[in-house]
Design a protein around this nucleic acid. Sequence first.
DNA 1: ATCAGTGCAAACCATTTGCAAATTA
DNA 2: TAATTTGCAAATGGTTTGCACTGAT
Lengths: 130, 130
Amino acid sequence: MATRSDYATRPREQVAAILRSRRRFLSAGEIHRELTEHREKISLSTVYRTLEYLQSKGDATVRIDDSGEATYTSCEPASHHHHAICEVCGRVEDVNCDVVDNFTESLRKQHGFELSGHKMEFIGRCRSCR
Amino acid sequence: MATRSDYATRPREQVAAILRSRRRFLSAGEIHRELTEHREKISLSTVYRTLEYLQSKGDATVRIDDSGEATYTSCEPASHHHHAICEVCGRVEDVNCDVVDNFTESLRKQHGFELSGHKMEFIGRCRSCR
DNA sequence: ATCAGTGCAAACCATTTGCAAATTA
DNA sequence: TAATTTGCAAATGGTTTGCACTGAT
C-alpha cells in the first residue's frame, strides 16, 4: 500500500489517512464530514475525485451499500478476497477466498466472526450464452 | 407466487406481469419504459410504489447493481437462495444455498452456468462486538 | 361514500462536471 | 511556466413525496 509520502497534495493525504485509520467502509460524505470537523479545508468534490484516484492506484475499494450509496475503504488489492462486515461496528475483515468451502467455521476460527447472514452473487454465462 | 388476479389494479398487474415474464433484474426505469412503449399508461412513481408493494408481498426482490441503481425481479421468497446472473443476457438463476460448499461444480452441473466471477459478503458480529 | 391507488410536479440526495483559481513540478 | 489539482456552483439522475384526483369495494 502507498505510504503517506506517496501523495503529493494535502487533500489526498488526508483522505487516504482517514481510509487507513478506520477499518470500515465510509461514504464520501462521512469522510468529508470527518475532515472538515477536524478543521481540514476540503471540498466534497475533491473527496470524490480523490476516492476515484485512490481506487485507480489500487489503494481503495468501493462497496455499494444496501441503500445504493458508495462506501470506501483502504484495502490490499493484491490478493482476491471478500469482506466480512460487522453488523454492529462495521469493522471489515478481509476473508480469504478459500473459506467458500466451509465458510461459517472458517470465519469463526480465523476471524472470531459470528456469522448471522451472507450475500453472494455469481457472475458468469448461462447455458444459452456460454 | 401471486397469480394475475391477486392484484386489484391494472398498474400493479402490468408491473407484476413484466417482472414475471422476464427472468432478469430490471430497473424501475426499464419497467416503465417497457410498459409505456407498449401503450400502457402508467407513471414512473407508480412503478416505484408498485415495486415496493410487490416486495412487501414477497413477490419481488431488489438488487442494487454496481452503479447503485435498484433493480427488481420476481422471485420465490420461501426458500433462502442466491442468484447466478448471466453477464451476457442478465438471466437470473436461483441458486440453492448448499452450493456454497463446492459452488463452481454445482453451478455448472445444476444450471449449466459457467462461472467467471463472484461476489460475496458476510454479515455478522466481529470478535469485539460479539 | 370511503379508502386505497395514481399522476404530476416538485423535492431530495448522492454524485458528477465545467470552469476559473490555486498549487505542484 | 506548463500541467495537475482544487473549490464552487450548477447540472444530473435515480428515487421519493405532497397533494389533488381517480378508481375500487
